[in-house]
């Protein structure tokens, strides 16, 4: 019997562009997905900002990687969670996000974290 695949959670906690964290997280997620791992993603705190629609970073000389989040489903990543409280604190409504996500309460977020084998932080 093949060994049971581990459960990986990628936690995104940083805004895009100001630091490289959000973009690096996405690259790591896609690489993990290419190896068919059991991947979940959690967008928490400032990590919800990269999901806003209509980003256009041409004028600041950086690549706009927000369209790439739409490819996650094609890569087989299905568990995409967003901390609802983080959205509210930042004045963002869920329909302003560019992809379909599952909204989670603080309590649910804690549970999701505890259920993982490995957590990657960005």
């Amino acid at each position: 019997m093949p060994p049971q695949k581990k459960k990986f959670l990628f936690v995104n906690r940083k805004a895009p562009y100001g630091t490289i964290h959000a973009h690096e997280a996405l690259e790591a997620i896609l690489t993990g997905a290419a190896f068919e791992q059991r991947i979940s993603i959690l967008f928490l705190d400032d990590g919800v900002f990269p999901l806003l629609k209509e980003q256009n970073s041409g004028d600041i000389g950086l690549k706009d990687f927000s369209p790439t989040y739409n490819a996650l489903s094609l890569y087989g990543v299905e568990n995409i969670y967003v901390d609802e409280e983080s959205l509210i604190e930042r004045g963002i409504a869920s329909d302003e996000l560019s992809i379909k996500v599952e909204l989670k309460t603080t309590k649910e977020v804690c549970l999701i974290m505890e259920q993982q084998d490995v957590i990657f932080n960005f």
Partner: peptide, 15 residues
């Protein structure tokens, strides 16, 4: 053009 990345072989063959 749509996703701003190059797909993997697996994703491309599926497509």
């Amino acid at each position: 053009q749509e996703y701003k990345i190059t797909p993997t072989v697996r994703v491309l063959t599926k497509m």
